[in-house]
Write a protein that binds this DNA or RNA. Structure first.
Lengths: 284, 284
DNA sequence: CTAATAGTGTCTGTTAGACACTATCTA
DNA sequence: TAGATAGTGTCTAACAGACACTATTAG
């Protein structure tokens, strides 16, 4: 490397003088949204915080990134530390939340990841170090009104007696969507920090891809009946859909395994996702 | 706040003891992808770096986030400092790049934003403090092969004699898309760090929304002819499209202003985007 | 008249929503 | 035979791709 900068320094000389301790730096964290489908319901994993800040609130599993640790490694490590879960079938970055005042400790910039797993992968979820308790919360988002201007929805997380409900307002502003949310009064618990925003984005992302990609199959076992797929689909999009049409369309991305499973008093054919379709439209 | 943690501390006590200097923190930066359409070509703003690292490479405008500055504020400030541009009509977060080894100075986590502006907003782009030179690069992405497995494309940035070209390989891996890229040998310059990944994501995002949303209109003047829209659309998606079909479909989201503009030896009607459609499908 | 641009019309195959229907098995 | 589940068929309106066509005006 021959190039020198305005001070006549080579890259090596420049780096030798470089000192990042001159400025105060934000802390970086990662959060994980882990979803699955249990008994036909869309579920989200939350942990109850046992320390400040947001003590006793429910939070997405996550934590600080080590200085020389890749972000993906960090989020997997934190998930394991807090919940003992190690396998996901789907994994992608969702959004980075970095408002200057979002954490009372210091400036915290959080990158949130979205992941999914079939329910049979998560038999033994335990609370780990930083979590008081973990819970698989049923996740429902119902759209109350929708027009050209925006949408008003209610997003509800429930687990046993715990009920966390937010009103979510999406409004079109100068070429982007502004989302505002507030805790609904019939809640008896709440989410930490701005985690509701991440959950809401995850639901919207999942919904927008549920019909046109194979994303749903990350939530389901390897071999599934058409009814299981449809139930999961309906849990995701939050409304019923026509059985005939759904079957007609979904079969295009399925392979019949030849196996059957007893369902009610009848046998249902078992299908698996045709990996031919895994690339399809999956790109943003 | 009465709640105390395991050490019996209130939130105030906890915060008083909290010391973020015990650990070394990553540095956080923001980068901006700013696009426009000039003479029917999709353009991207790049600045030539005048200091280490990546000296003399072309880079996205951006820089360090101040400790107590919102990320959006930071990216607007950096854009103004480096290019004197202050107005965008479209603005959203794109992705956060945080691999542990992506910058030789220290650990750097970069959040990249995508923005657009009509060409008439950017008459006087100047190189600012940290940039040697700025340039509006014509951006083209051509897909060479595409199948269920993935896509091979070439992404080319050119500005005058400068030609920066990358081969981009998208491959379906375990339910997500892995993108790899390498500098094409007929390039005579290159992009700094991993900026090609961000540019590639931006193109894909723009393409995926170009037909179904009004995103294109962020690149165009207020009043446009159908031909201008079609040309911009073709520049974005990288291939020609049928004029009759395009007009039939795009008119659904337009309002005829009644004005006309001379085009060739004929007058063309001027339309504007119907803001009724601004919310439509814009959510991820 | 030609070239360059704007702008329209029509055919056809595919897709998506609504809805009525049959099949199998247990109790 | 009732009830619960699986699974199919059909009509129709909307949409999308291919392509042939007309209109206006400077030079």
């Amino acid at each position: 490397m021959e190039d020198r900068n305005a001070k006549g320094e080579t890259l090596e000389e420049f780096l030798a003088k470089y000192d990042d301790s001159l400025y105060r730096h934000p802390s970086n964290t990662v959060d994980m949204i882990l979803m699955t489908v249990i008994e036909g319901k869309l579920k989200l994993l939350l942990v109850k915080r046992k320390d400040h800040p947001f003590i006793h609130d429910w939070a997405l599993p996550g934590g600080f990134i080590n200085f020389d640790e890749d972000m993906e490694t960090a989020v997997m490590r934190e998930l394991q530390e807090e919940t003992n879960i190690t396998d996901q079938t789907y994994f992608r970055q969702l959004y980075t939340f970095g408002n200057a005042d979002r954490d009372p400790r210091t400036r915290v910039i959080t990158t949130c990841y979205l992941s999914m797993t079939p329910a049979d992968n998560i038999r033994n979820t335990l609370a780990g170090d930083d979590a008081e308790e973990t819970g698989w919360f049923t996740l429902e988002k119902t759209t109350l009104t929708a027009d050209a201007d925006g949408r008003d929805s209610v997003l509800t997380l429930s687990c046993g007696d715990i009920r966390i409900s937010y009103s979510v307002f999406d409004r079109a502003k100068n070429n982007y969507i502004e989302t505002r949310s507030e805790l609904h009064p019939d809640s008896n618990a709440k989410l930490a920090a701005d985690h509701i925003k991440a959950v809401n984005m995850a639901v919207d992302l999942l919904r927008s891809r549920a019909a046109s990609t194979g994303i749903l199959f990350n939530l389901l076992p390897e071999e599934v009946t058409l009814r299981q797929i449809q139930t999961a689909y309906e849990a995701v999009i939050g409304r019923p859909t026509d059985t005939g049409n759904f079957r007609r369309d979904i079969k295009k991305m399925l392979i019949n395994t030849g196996h059957t499973a007893k369902a009610g008093n009848k046998y249902a054919a078992l299908y698996r996702f045709n990996p031919m379709y895994s690339y399809l439209k999956e790109n943003l």
